[in-house]
């Protein structure tokens, strides 16, 4: 089955691009996590839970929220058949390092940090926000163009008879946010942007 990319959104350090167009830029001096908060405010999103999220979840949450703006998937109408398939290289390592500090000499393990030491929590946050009850999987690979990831998305589309899926790369490690998420569907016309093995890499700015 051929799949095509309807929209894509990229967050890289202090900038955000929607379909390749720069829609947000914060100052260079700002740290990546402060810049994520600035991006949140600039989109006028009202979701206090955002501030409780770790940086990986903030990155993925924002990228997907911006991606879904003005689509039928945005909002709390339950959706049972939209897949979320994300990939990254550092899993939850950034938050793992934060949690480690809470179990050192000053031993007070933090439950609200520990819960984010699993990379799939970002998909939980996205699912809660937009009521996605469908399949979601967090994959980890050192490569952005992991061919098995691409094969999986294709087959999941067929097996689950999905209309849409949210797929892409969502990473955050040591003050570097790096996300490129896409909304994909079954191809209708050949002129549409094709979702292929190298699409994530090709769309990168």
């Amino acid at each position: 089955m051929d799949l095509s990319v309807i929209k894509y959104c990229q967050i890289k350090n202090n900038a955000c691009f929607l379909n390749g167009e720069n829609i947000f830029q914060s100052s260079e001096e700002k740290t990546a996590d402060k810049s994520l908060v600035e991006l949140y405010r600039s989109r006028k999103i009202k979701y206090p839970k955002f501030f409780k999220m770790d940086k990986l979840a903030k990155t993925g949450f924002l990228a997907v929220d911006i991606l879904l703006e003005n689509t039928e998937l945005y909002g709390t109408e339950p959706k049972y058949n939209t897949g979320i398939f994300l990939l990254n290289s550092s899993a939850s390592l950034d938050t793992d390092e934060v949690y480690l500090e809470t179990i050192g000499d000053n031993y007070f393990p933090s439950p609200s940090v520990f819960v984010y030491t699993l990379p799939n929590i970002v998909m939980g946050e996205i699912s809660i926000r937009h009521k996605f009850f469908g399949e979601n999987i967090f994959f980890v690979s050192s490569k952005k163009n992991n061919f098995a990831f691409y094969d999986y998305v294709n087959q999941a589309f067929i097996d689950n008879q999905m209309k849409y899926a949210i797929v892409g790369w969502v990473d955050y490690y040591r003050q570097k946010s790096d996300a490129l998420v896409m909304l994909i569907k079954k191809q209708d016309k050949e002129t549409e942007l094709k979702f292929e093995k190298n699409t994530i890499l090709n769309l990168y700015k």
Partner: peptide, 20 residues
């Protein structure tokens, strides 16, 4: 491919194997 999906990772990996 690594699957890190909390406590459902193992079964998810088997399902992924099937799809692949």
């Amino acid at each position: 491919l690594v699957i890190s999906n909390a406590c459902i990772s193992g079964l998810t990996a088997a399902i992924t194997a099937k799809r692949l």
